[in-house]
Every structure is written in C-alpha cells, then in structure tokens.
Write a protein that binds this DNA or RNA. Structure first.
Length: 448
RNA sequence: GGCCUCGUGGCGGAGUGGUGACGCAGCGGAUUGCAAAUCCGUGAACCCCGGUUCAAUUCCGGGCGAGGCCUCCA
C-alpha cells in the first residue's frame, strides 16, 4: 500500500502521514469570509482540499474522515455592507448580517458544488460559536496568556516562547520590520486581539468584557475545539499560504495556550496563490474573476481540471488558453473513459502520484497513459463524473436539430453531393458546432 | 529592512546525482471527396557564475530575475 506523504509547513518537509485515529481522521480548512462573491483564487483551497478529502476517504473509508470548513461571518467588511444594506430599516444589524451572509454563502455553496466539491462534514459559522470563543478567552486570561486593556482582550505573545514557529519569524524581527502603528494599550507590539468592543451599529455579543465581538483568529481556534470535541489536536489544518501569518500562527498561539501546549494540528498545509493572465488579481486591474462569472462561460469540471493541472503549492497562472486546453482534454477523456466507468480499480501509479503530497499534475500524466478503466476510476477519485452525456458543452444546444442536419449531410455525401454536405458542415460551424467524422460515424462538439 | 517561495523545451507542467515525464502547439505519415477529428511517428529545455562529485538541471555558496508574507486577503 502506498503511504500518503504531505508537505508540512510547520517542518518545511514532506512527511509520512499517519492519523492520530484512523477511525476518525480530522481535517479543518479555513473557509470563506462571506461578504461578496468568491473569486477564482478562493476556489483553489476548496478544490485542493476536496481532493485531499476524497483521497483520505479512499484510504481510510468515507465514514472515517471528518472535514470541517468554517464560514466566517464576523468581519468588518461584512459589517460595513450590512450597514449599507440596512439603510433606514429598523432591524438589528445582526439580522441584516445574517441576511447578507446567508445569501453570499448560498452562492458560494452553489459555486463550489458546480466545481465538483463534496460538502464538508460540517460548516460551522462564527456567529453560532460565540460561547466557545468567550470560554477560550476566559481560559487564556486565567492561564496568564491574555489580558484586558482599554476594553479589549489581547493575547500576550510573550507568554508563548515558541510564538512564530509556523511562520518562522521571531518576535524581535517582526517588531523591527513592523510597518504599522501599534495600539498604545498593547504590552507587546505583536499582541493580537481576542475580543474587541462593538459600538451600537456593529454586531456584538455580551461578554465579561462588555458588548463586543471576537478577533478574527479566535473563531477558528474555538470552532476546532467545539466541532472536534474530545481532542486538542487534529490531523490536518489547511488554508491559503497567506494565512500562515498572522492567522494560523495566532490560532496556534491561542489553542496551544488554552490546551496545555498540546499541538493544534499535526500537519499544516497551504496552497499557493493564483495569478490571472500573468498578473495579480485585483479589482483595480479589472482582472478580478469570480467563480460565478466563470461558470457562465465554462463547465465547472473544466475549471476544476484546470486547477488540478498545477501542483497545489506552486503559484499558478489562470489563463483562458489553459482552460481551453483543459476543456479539450476533459472532453476527449469523458468519451474515452465512458466504457470504463464502474470498474472501481485505482491504478497504483495514479494513487502513488496523488499520495505524494497531492501531486495532481503527475497523477494527470498517469491518466494520459491509462486505459479506459484506470482513466475512469482515476477521474472519479479526483471528483469528476466521466460520462459523455454529461458533457456540459452540450447542455444548451438543440441536439435533435443537429442530429437531423448530420443525417442530411451524410445523405448528401453518399450521393457525392459534396457542395451540399460542405454547406451543412459550414452551417453547423456557424452555430458553433464542430463535426468529427470517425470510423463509427459522425460525432459533434461545441466549439470553445 | 526582515522572513519565505520560485526560475525546466514555443506554451503548460512534473521529476531526478548518471538512459532528460506528461499534455498542448509544431513537424512527418496514415486516414478523408476536401477538411476537422482520430491513429502512428518525431525534433525541442533545466536563469548566470563558482564549489562538491567519476558525474549536477538535481546538492552547497554567490549573483540576477519573478512572486508572497510582515496590514484585510485563498
């Protein structure tokens, strides 16, 4: 049996993966902040960790893997939009927040479903886990790891000697390189907020420190604790590479300080960033692409496949040319794999590639060498459904009309009326339909 | 300024101390009424300079270049 190896940001090496409890493999991934439509960069962790989820289920059994992806619905951008949205209505701001985040989250859920991602085992929301956050804050204060100052509760970085171990930064270096003004009430410039006060127009909850709201990092620590009850340490914690510092570093500080220094996670995994047509995605450059927009022009499985053509830790360039190539490959494979669906075997070379720190480009290369059975099962393990009739490119055209024209063209060809047969071919091409004459007849596809 | 990634053929993209994946495009052939599709075949790369080694694209050092984080961010 092939061993699963994963790159651990904590140790900066690839390690053999062995779950704490093979009957309950636990994975937590930082999910979306639901203030707006998710962009294609947000799709990367969703897809990458979905592949890992599927691989873990394959190895340990579907019922033995728990995958939690949170929903961040406490955030200043959300608050700002909720205030706008409320306008003159006389309703609590928290209700408007819920309205907004329900809607945004609904779109996100539909988007990632279209990308072929399985629903996680649980999707806890920050607003529904305030009590555990308050409890953890109290525990940190009691343990001498946090202090109250000017209405805030702050984590005392000096109380954790190994602070910085994930991002490999020393507190001294960070202070030296700091580019932001430090709040005067902090004991140490690197101390971060666990709890902060809310004004009347900001969502807030009653706490021992007055009406307020949690700091960003606290939600994950608290939700991991409450969702994975009974353990301090989970197997895998994932997210985008930009979360290494400060978010994950601070999660570690909070959770370990609250849990007798027990590690928060054994393996820390981080996906690389994504550029669009060679440039960083940003609203000012006008190349900000949401998953939702892309799904109007491209089948979800094409987007998924395109994402998996590069290794999850590598930076990747998202291009239209790449998506066309992905579409062509997938279309050809769906036809080729059709016969092999249901065989259920996974080839060793494919599994070995995937097990080597989720080397999807290598795994795809193996599929290029595979026959229909291995191709079909490999595609399915990666989260595709290789059925020709499912080809999304054929969804929105009148297949019967096309078939009728193809028949007419065949008749013309039989009669050696090539002028007519070519006319029909051109007519279809003008509609964006490409004909393919094969030994077993004529098939067609939609031009990309 | 500090910390950290990365630099492979025309393009995408793995990997390795010694026989240089894989895909797309290209080229040649088969096939076709002509194309397309398909099938077969094929040329082509490891940023620069040192070092270690019998041997480096792969290890070490330096340089150059690109990017990320240090502030909300997948």
């Amino acid at each position: 049996m092939t061993t699963l190896r994963l790159y651990n940001t904590l140790t900066r090496t690839k390690e053999d993966f062995g779950p704490i409890d093979p009957n309950n493999v636990r994975m937590y991934v930082c999910g979306p902040t639901v203030y707006d439509y998710a962009h294609i960069g947000n799709a990367r962790p969703a897809i990458v960790f979905d592949v890992l989820f599927r691989l873990l289920r394959h190895i340990y059994g579907a019922e033995h893997v728990t995958y939690v992806r949170n929903i961040t619905d406490i955030d200043d951008k959300i608050n700002a939009r909720a205030l706008e949205r409320r306008g003159g209505r006389n309703v609590p701001v928290l209700d408007v927040v819920r309205e907004l985040t329900e809607q945004t989250y609904g779109v996100y859920r539909d988007d990632v479903t279209a990308l072929g991602c399985l629903p996680p085992s649980a999707m806890p929301r920050a607003t529904e886990n305030i009590a555990p956050m308050i409890a953890m804050t109290q525990a940190l204060i009691a343990g001498g790891h946090a202090y109250e100052a000017a209405g805030h509760v702050l984590f005392d970085v000096s109380s954790k000697p190994d602070y910085g171990k994930l991002s490999r930064r020393s507190v001294d270096d960070m202070i030296a390189g700091a580019r932001v003004d430090v709040a005067p009430y902090k004991k140490n410039p690197m101390d971060f907020v666990l709890w902060k006060p809310s004004d009347a127009n900001t969502p807030g909850w009653d706490s021992p420190w007055g009406r307020g709201r949690p700091g960003w990092h606290l939600e994950c620590s608290a939700m991991i604790q409450s969702t994975f009850a009974g353990t301090d340490t989970i197997d895998i914690h994932g997210g985008g590479i930009d979360l290494v510092f400060p978010h994950h570093e601070n999660e570690i500080a909070q959770s370990e300080s609250a849990h007798h220094a027990h590690p928060l996670a054994k393996v820390w995994m981080h996906n690389g960033f994504l550029n669009v047509e060679g440039e960083k995605m940003s609203k000012s450059l006008g190349n900000f692409v949401t998953i939702n927009e892309l799904l109007k022009d491209w089948p979800g499985d094409v987007l998924r496949f395109n994402m998996l053509r590069s290794h999850y830790r590598q930076p990747m360039d998202w291009t239209v040319a790449g998506m066309r190539e992905s579409w062509n490959t997938l279309e050809r494979w769906y036809v080729e794999a059709g016969a092999g669906v249901g065989s259920g075997t996974i080839s060793q070379s494919f599994l070995a590639a995937l097990s080597d720190d989720l080397n999807t480009p290598q795994a795809i290369a193996e599929l290029h060498k595979a026959g229909p059975d291995d191709l079909a099962s490999g595609l399915m393990l990666l989260g595709f459904q290789p059925q020709p009739e499912r080809l999304a490119s054929k969804a929105n055209v009148d297949a019967d009309a096309i078939t009728a024209l193809i028949e007419a063209r065949l008749a013309a060809r039989k009669a050696k009326d090539f002028k007519e047969s070519d006319r029909i071919r051109d007519e279809l091409l003008a509609q964006g339909i490409i004909l393919k004459d094969g030994p077993t007849g004529t098939t067609w596809e939609v031009k990309k």
